[in-house]
Simulated assay, not measured.
Amino acid sequence: MLREDLKGLTDAVSSLATHGSAAVRDGVRQKAYETADRARAAAGEVRDQAEEAHEKVNGVIVANPTTSVLAAFGVGMLLGMWSRR
């Protein structure tokens, strides 16, 4: 009778380990999917902000081409002088 009880207990623990690990695996998989979805959403927001900034910069350049060229030239000169040191 003790052997039967021990066998039943062993089977129960084995079943719990099998089903428990499946539940843990499914939980980890679900969290990974949720994290990936949040990362995609964040990347989309960053992309949208970068596109908006790009459009604003292009608008300033188109509106002020001479100033933009002179500013780029000045920044290039400063960087060139700074890199020689």
Rank of each mutant, 00 (worst) to 15 (best):
R25M: 08
R29E: 10
E52C: 03
L78I: 09
K56G: 01
T18M: 15
G8M: 09
S14R: 11
E51D: 15
K7D: 13
L70Q: 11
N58R: 13
R84P: 01
R84F: 12
A63I: 04
G44C: 04
E4P: 00
N64C: 07
H19A: 13
S68T: 06
V28T: 13
G80P: 00
A39G: 01
R38K: 14
L2P: 00
G44Q: 09
T66P: 00
R3D: 10
D37Q: 12
A39Y: 06
L6W: 10
S15E: 07
A22M: 11
M1C: 09
G76Y: 12
I61D: 00
L9C: 03
V62P: 00
A71D: 13
S14T: 14
G74D: 08
D48H: 06
V13K: 06
S21T: 09
V69P: 00
V75W: 04
V13R: 03
A23P: 01
M77L: 15
T10P: 00
G8W: 02
K31N: 05
T10I: 02
M1E: 08
G76E: 03
V46D: 10
E4W: 13
I61N: 00
L2K: 07
V69R: 11
A72C: 06
S15R: 14
K56E: 14
R29I: 07
K7I: 04
R25F: 03
T10M: 06
G76H: 05
R38H: 07
E52D: 09
T18S: 13
V46F: 03
L6I: 14
S15V: 04
